[in-house]
Amino acid sequence: MTSRVPARNGQTDWNAMLARVSFIELDARARAVALLDDGTARELCGPFDRIESPWLEPQGVVPESDDGVVVVKGVLGGRPAVVIAVEQAFQGGGIGEVSGAKAAASLSLAVRDNREGTPTVAVLLLETGGVRLQEANLGLATVAEVCAALLELRALQPEVGVIAGTMGCFGGMSIAAGLCSTLIMTREGRLGLNGPEVIESEAGVAEFDASDDALIWAIDGGAQRTGTGLADVLVLDDVTAVRSAVIEAVGRGVPGEHRSRRIREWRARLDAVDPADPPDPADLATVWAHAVPAEGDRR
């Protein structure tokens, strides 16, 4: 599913393009508030609560008083919602003990709300390189808690992930992205388990040239990930477009089968690719389309 560039009489409507408000250029707090209905946003564990990581300052890193994750409760299209936004400007969106705990606890509270009669949906704004290196195992443990909470909540209400900015979503949090009911991306967004720099450092430049921007977006970019079914909706970098896509995704409710449960389908797609002679990124969608098992035989 794609939200297209505004057009009029077959030509790009540049006035509409220039009138857009960039979602990418907002910080995490502004993104979260922009998604919610006007006047309904209420931040939990905000910066004045000074919930900081205790592990950064001893390692020479200045901590941030919300630890780089913003949690905002409110109303989204008339429905109770919690928005969890990762701030990419702090430590590259890295997840540590405190920030991961904030995200996991917020999802667990949404589960509680649902079970107590308040049908609360969750939106994750994912701009992260994965676990923060300074907190290593602590970060990994909290990412696991986030994934567990996502699995519990998605049986009750839809969870929408949004990957908008060029930081993208990598590492353990890319697994969290894959667990969402719906995943929305912009063309500028990126998604992958391992980042280009990590792949290059481990396997060499012949495996992945991390300086080749065209290659990176051809493989990890929003258009490619949506075209190959790893994400669901491709939207413009525009606050109104992103908000509309999120509300539409929430309105579709819990899917009959989540993407992460279609094991046989993904195994067939992997089997269709020869690692010694991989297809060009532009051809991958076609290769995978031919590899999909018959309906009813995807698990």
Rank of each mutant, 00 (worst) to 15 (best):
K73P: 01
V160E: 03
A177Q: 04
L126H: 07
V146I: 15
A122Q: 08
G130L: 05
V123R: 08
L133G: 15
L151F: 06
L179V: 03
N137C: 09
L133V: 15
V86W: 01
G94T: 06
V146E: 11
M167W: 00
A136E: 09
R187D: 13
V160T: 08
V83T: 08
V143E: 08
I184D: 07
S106P: 10
A141P: 00
S99V: 10
L183V: 03
A103Q: 02
L153N: 14
G130Y: 01
E152V: 14
I163P: 12
G178T: 11
V82Q: 05
E97A: 15
M185I: 05
A89V: 13
T118C: 08
F170S: 14
G165H: 06
G168A: 13
A141Y: 01
Q157V: 10
M185E: 04
C147M: 08
L126W: 02
C180R: 11
N137K: 12
L76E: 06
P80E: 06
P158Q: 02
G139R: 07
E127R: 15
A122Y: 03
G178E: 10
A105Q: 06
F170E: 14
G96C: 01
M167I: 15
A148F: 02
L183R: 02
V143P: 03
V82S: 00
V143D: 06
A81W: 01
I163W: 05
L140V: 12
T128L: 00
A122K: 10
D113W: 07
G74D: 03
L156W: 05
N137L: 14
R112Y: 02
S106N: 10
G171W: 00
G172I: 11
I84N: 13
G172K: 12
C147L: 08
K102T: 04
A144H: 05
V75W: 04
G74T: 04
I175K: 00
K102M: 03
V75S: 13
L109I: 07
L138I: 08
T120E: 12
A164P: 03
G93R: 12
V123I: 06
G171H: 10
L109F: 00
A81K: 09
V86C: 09
V82R: 08
E135C: 04
G92K: 11
A85L: 10
A110V: 09
E87A: 15
A141I: 09
V143W: 02
A136F: 03
A110W: 04
A122G: 09
T166N: 10
A176M: 04
A141K: 13
V160C: 08
V146T: 11
K102N: 00
